[in-house]
Amino acid sequence: MVPESYYLALSAVLFSIGVVGVIIRRNPLVIFMSIELMLNAANLAFVAFGHRLGSNDGQAVVFFVMAVAAAEVAVGLAIIVAIFRLRRRLSVDDLSLMRW
């Protein structure tokens, strides 16, 4: 039986890798994928805690996180496509102006 704290440690490491990815990358698509990585790390922590507590509530929460992540990815990719149409290049450093 693997103790739950191992899962929690793995989820912490994955989350930190996602944060570093968000900081060091310039491509908004890769930044988005790093955010997905962070969401997954949080999901893993949810499931591990639910397993420790012997309840299924953690899994229900993860289900909702997945639904929200799907909606978030769709909207975010649409925004990126709209920005690309406008500017013809893709780097977050260019996007300092919050104007259409």
Partner: peptide, 15 residues
């Protein structure tokens, strides 16, 4: 260093 600091904090909190 920011990521390492965050990792240490989350590890302390979670584990």
């Amino acid at each position: 260093p920011a990521g390492a600091l965050l990792l240490a904090q989350v590890l302390v909190i979670l584990v």
